[in-house]
C-alpha cells in the first residue's frame, strides 16, 4: 500500500479513538456552546449595560469562549495522547514499521485542530443564529486569528509533549497552561472587567482572544499581536522539535 493510504488508515483509526472518549469530546467540543446558551438564556446579559462597558455582557464575553476548545485540545488532549503513546511504547513500535512515527503526530495535530475549528464555528453560529450577534465583521482577520492562535496554542502543546516525561506531568503542565491562558483570555472574569494591565498582557497570550474580538466586533487589524503570537508558535515549535523524544 502507498504511504498515503497508510496515513489515511492511521487518521481514521485515530479519529475513532478520539470519538471513543466522550468526556473529552463533550468538554472540548460542546462546553463553550453550552456556556453560551446558558448565559444567553439570561435576558439581562443580552442587554447593553454601563456595567459591562456599555455593551451587552454576552457580546463582550463570547470571544473569550472561543479560546476554551483550542486551549483544552492543544494543551491537554493532544499532549496527553502523545505522552501516553510514548510511555506505552506506541511511538517506538511505529518506528520499526515503514510508517514514520511523525505521521501520528501530524494526524493528532490535524484531528485536534479540526475539532477546535468545529467548536469555534459552533460558538459563532449559535451566537449569531440564536442570540442575534453580528457575524464576524472581518472574516479574513478572524480566519487569521484562528490560524495563528491555533498555531501558537498547538506549538505550546507540542512543547508540553516534548518536555513532560510522564503522562501525569503532561496533565499538570496542560492544566496550568489552560488556567493561565483562559485567565488572560477573560474566561473567568470577562475582559471588560479585567484590569487594563492584564488585558494588555492578555493581547499577547495565546491564542490571542483580543485578535478574535477585534476581528469579530472591532476594526480587525491586530498586526502586532499576530506577529508576537506567530513568534511564540515558531519558538515553541523549534523547542518542541529540539526536545521531543520518541521513546
Amino acid at each position: 500500500m502507498t504511504a498515503r493510504s497508510a496515513t489515511a488508515v492511521l487518521a481514521r483509526t485515530e479519529a475513532r479513538l478520539f470519538l471513543r472518549e466522550p468526556g473529552t469530546l463533550l468538554l472540548a467540543l460542546l462546553l463553550p456552546t453550552v456556556l453560551l446558551v446558558g448565559l444567553g438564556a439570561v435576558p439581562a446579559l443580552r442587554e447593553p449595560s454601563p456595567a459591562f462597558g456599555g455593551q451587552a455582557f454576552l457580546s463582550g464575553y463570547t470571544p473569550s469562549l472561543l479560546g476554551w476548545s483550542l486551549a483544552f485540545l492543544a494543551l491537554q488532549t493532544m499532549p496527553a495522547n502523545l505522552v501516553a503513546y510514548r510511555e506505552k511504547g506506541i511511538l517506538r513500535r511505529l518506528a520499526i514499521t515503514p510508517v514514520r512515527p511523525a505521521v501520528v503526530l501530524q494526524v493528532q495535530l490535524l484531528l485536534n485542530v479540526v475539532t477546535a475549528a468545529i467548536a469555534m464555528v459552533l460558538v459563532v453560529v449559535v451566537a449569531v443564529g440564536v442570540f442575534g450577534s453580528a457575524p464576524p465583521r472581518h472574516p479574513l482577520a478572524f480566519a487569521a486569528a484562528f490560524v495563528i492562535g491555533s498555531a501558537s496554542m498547538f506549538a505550546l502543546g507540542l512543547l508540553i509533549a516534548a518536555l513532560a516525561p510522564r503522562a501525569k506531568a503532561a496533565a499538570a503542565l496542560g492544566t496550568l497552561g489552560l488556567l493561565v491562558t483562559q485567565f488572560f483570555g477573560g474566561l473567568y472574569l470577562p475582559r471588560f472587567l479585567l484590569p487594563e494591565v492584564i488585558v494588555r498582557i492578555g493581547e499577547f497570550v495565546p491564542p490571542g482572544i483580543g485578535a478574535f474580538q477585534s476581528a469579530w466586533t472591532g476594526d480587525g487589524a491586530t498586526p502586532v499581536q499576530l506577529t508576537v503570537l506567530s513568534a511564540v508558535a515558531v519558538v515553541a515549535t523549534v523547542a518542541a522539535v529540539r526536545y521531543f523524544r520518541w521513546e
Binding site: M1, T97, P98
Partner: peptide, 25 residues
C-alpha cells in the same frame, strides 16, 4: 519485530490494530 514491552491504545479493537498495521505494508 515484536518488542518486549509495549502497549496499544486502550480503546483500540484487535481487528482495527491489525488492519492499521497491515496498511503500513
Amino acid at each position: 519485530v515484536q518488542l518486549q514491552a509495549g502497549e496499544l491504545p486502550e480503546r483500540l479493537r484487535v481487528r482495527e490494530a491489525v488492519e492499521l498495521f497491515a496498511a503500513f505494508y
